[in-house]
Design a protein around this nucleic acid. Structure first.
Lengths: 235, 235
DNA sequence: GAGTGGTCTAGACCACAAC
DNA sequence: TTGTGGTCTAGACCACTCC
C-alpha cells in the first residue's frame, strides 16, 4: 500500500485522503454513511493511527466528512457550494491576458476622513488619500478604480507618485498580510461611462474591497469593469 | 505555555499557529524574514517537533509562509488576495434575509444535447432537461434561473416536478459532492426584464456554474440577479 | 462503561538543497 | 557534508457521548 503511494509520488496521508475522497465523490459512500473507524482504516492501509487521523482531519476541515467522538465519522451532506477566487493585481490580470498595461491616474487628493462616504467604512477622523485612476489594457479602458487610503495607517503613501505606480500594487507590497471583505455587484456605467468608453446604460461589474490590518483600516477600493469583456472566474 | 493554550480552549498546535500568524499579520515578521527552525520553536513553545511541524505546515498551505528543505521557513510575499465565497441555495439565501421564498417555474422541457448552446459545455449527445424558473422573495422577482440537466447522468430528474421543487435544491441533495466552475459577470436585463420586473437596460449580475462529477457533466445553470438589491459578498 | 476521535510525545529515517 | 523540513511510527492520555 505504502509502496504504491510512494510510487505515485505522494505521501501515504495524501493517498489515504485521495482514496476516501474518491469513494465519496464517486458515490461509493453517500452522505450519512458511516466511514470506518480510525483503527479499521489503520488496518486497511497498514499504517499508524496518526496517519489515518491526519487524513480524516483534513477531509473534515474541507467539509467532506463530519467527525464526532464516540459517534464516529460520517460522510457530510453538502449544504452550499464553496468557491475560492483568487483576485490578482489588475496589472497582472492584464498581462496574463496578453495585454499591455498602462495606468492613467485622473486625480490624487487629500481628504478629511469625515468627508469620506459612509459606505467606505473609513475611520472617523484623520486624513485620507483619495485616488481616481483608470487601468488600461492596450490603451483601452479595462477598469476604473476609486480608492481611499488611510494615511494614519500608511503614512508613506503620502509621498508616493500614484500617477506612475498603481496604488493596489504598491499597497500589496508595502502593507502585506491584510484582512479584507469583498462585495461584487452589477451597476450601470453612469458617470463612469466616459472614462470607460461605454454607454451610460452599459452593465458593469462593481468590485469593492475593504482592507484592514491588526484592527486598523488600511484602504477601501471600488473597481468598475465594463460588463462585456470581463468576468470573475473561480474553480 | 501549553497550560495557557488549554485555558483558552484551543490546542497547542492552534496556539502556535495563531502566535506565528499574529507575528506576521502585525508586522513583527515581514515578508522574506526567516522564521525560526522547527527545533527552535520546539524549545520556545516547549513541545515536540511534530506539533510545531503541523502548525507550520498549515500556515504554509494557507500561504503565510514558504518552506524549503535545508533553506528553512520564510514569511511569504502575498501575491494575490484570496476570497472564499459561499454560494448557498437561493431559497436559503432568501430565508436568511427574512424573505418568504416562492418558486415560479416557467418551462420544463426535454432537449437534445445537440441543441444546447455551446457555452453550456454539455455532452454532445443524449437528452437534457431544460428548466426556466424564477425565484421570488415575498412574491417579488429575486433571480431568474436557466438550467440544463444531463439526463444521462441524472435520469431520476426526468420524473421530478420542478414546478414544486427548485432544481438546485433537489440536485444538491441527490447528486452530492460535485466539482464546479464558476463565472460571475455583469449583463443588461434584456429579454429577462419582464420576468425580473426591471428595465431592459438594468444592470444585472450573471452567475454561471458548470457542474460535473467523476468526469461526467451534471448540470449547467445561469442565474440573473437584478443589480440593485443583490451582491455577492466574501470574506 | 466503553468506543470513538483529539491531541501530543519521543524518536526515527529520508529527501533535498545549500554549502 | 550537513542542516533543514517531510513523513511516519507506536504508544499514550484525555474528552466526549452513546449505551
Amino acid at each position: 500500500m505504502r509502496e504504491a503511494a510512494r510510487a505515485a509520488g505522494r505521501s501515504l496521508e495524501q493517498h489515504i485522503r485521495a482514496e476516501i475522497e474518491n469513494r465519496i465523490m464517486s458515490g461509493v459512500w453517500n452522505p450519512g454513511d458511516r466511514v470506518p473507524a480510525e483503527h479499521e482504516l489503520m488496518i486497511e492501509f497498514g499504517c499508524s493511527r496518526m496517519t489515518v487521523n491526519r487524513a480524516l482531519s483534513v477531509l473534515a476541515e474541507a467539509g467532506f466528512v463530519e467527525r464526532r467522538r464516540r459517534a464516529g465519522t460520517i460522510v457530510a451532506r453538502p449544504r452550499t457550494h464553496m468557491a475560492a477566487i483568487a483576485i490578482p493585481d489588475i496589472g497582472a490580470q492584464i498581462a496574463a491576458r496578453g495585454g499591455r498595461y498602462r495606468l492613467d491616474t485622473q486625480a490624487v487628493r487629500r481628504l478629511a476622513a469625515s468627508d469620506a462616504p459612509e459606505t467606505a467604512r473609513m475611520p472617523d477622523d484623520g486624513a485620507l488619500l483619495s485616488i481616481l485612476c483608470c487601468h488600461l489594457s492596450d490603451d483601452r479602458p479595462f477598469a476604473i478604480e476609486q480608492r481611499l487610503i488611510n494615511l494614519a495607517a500608511v503614512p508613506q503613501a503620502a509621498d508616493m507618485d500614484f500617477t506612475v505606480t498603481p496604488p493596489g500594487t504598491w499597497l500589496l507590497a508595502h502593507v502585506p498580510w491584510t484582512e479584507a471583505d469583498y462585495r461584487i455587484g452589477a451597476v450601470s456605467a453612469g458617470g463612469n461611462a466616459g472614462l470607460l468608453g461605454v454607454d451610460v446604460a452599459a452593465a458593469c461589474l462593481s468590485f469593492e474591497r475593504w482592507t484592514w490590518r491588526a484592527g486598523e483600516t488600511i484602504t477601501y477600493v471600488r473597481q468598475i469593469f465594463p460588463g462585456e469583456g470581463f468576468a470573475l472566474t473561480a474553480g
